[in-house]
């Protein structure tokens, strides 16, 4: 059970992101919390595919006879990282535009829907 410490680290990252989302009101800090959750999920996917004693799944100068870690979680993590980057850019653009129009970044003060 103590051998599952890498999984616990991913869960702690996700919990920190949830704590940020629950307690902060600044839009930039909300974006940071969502990015923390994304990092935790990506790390969790990569650790799911680890094989004990495995090397990277690349045959260029690989040590002969070594086991390789699972390549599919790494490929899906690559997809996930790029999508996270796109959503982060979109969130920051929204934050910039909201600050331009309202003069504040407090999510509690941006309730009314008139533009």
């Amino acid at each position: 059970m103590i051998g599952n410490f890498p999984f616990a680290v991913c869960m702690i990252l996700i919990a920190l992101g949830l704590w940020t989302l629950l307690t902060r009101r600044n839009l930039i800090k909300l974006a940071i919390g969502i990015t923390l959750i994304e990092s935790g999920v990506n790390l969790f996917l990569v650790t799911l595919g680890y094989v004990r004693g495995g090397v990277a799944p690349i045959y260029t100068y690989a040590p002969p006879g070594a086991r390789m870690v699972l390549p599919t979680p790494q490929a899906l993590t690559l997809t996930s990282i790029v999508i996270g980057l796109a959503t982060t850019a979109l969130m920051l653009a929204f934050a910039v535009v909201i600050y331009r129009h309202r003069g504040t970044l407090d999510a509690g003060k941006i309730r009314e829907l008139k533009g």
Partner: peptide, 18 residues
């Protein structure tokens, strides 16, 4: 929620043996 996550991490398959 954190207790649920940590319990899930502890009761998953062993690290390194998918």
């Amino acid at each position: 929620v954190v207790g649920f996550l940590l319990g899930a991490a502890a009761w998953m398959h062993p690290f390194g043996l998918p």
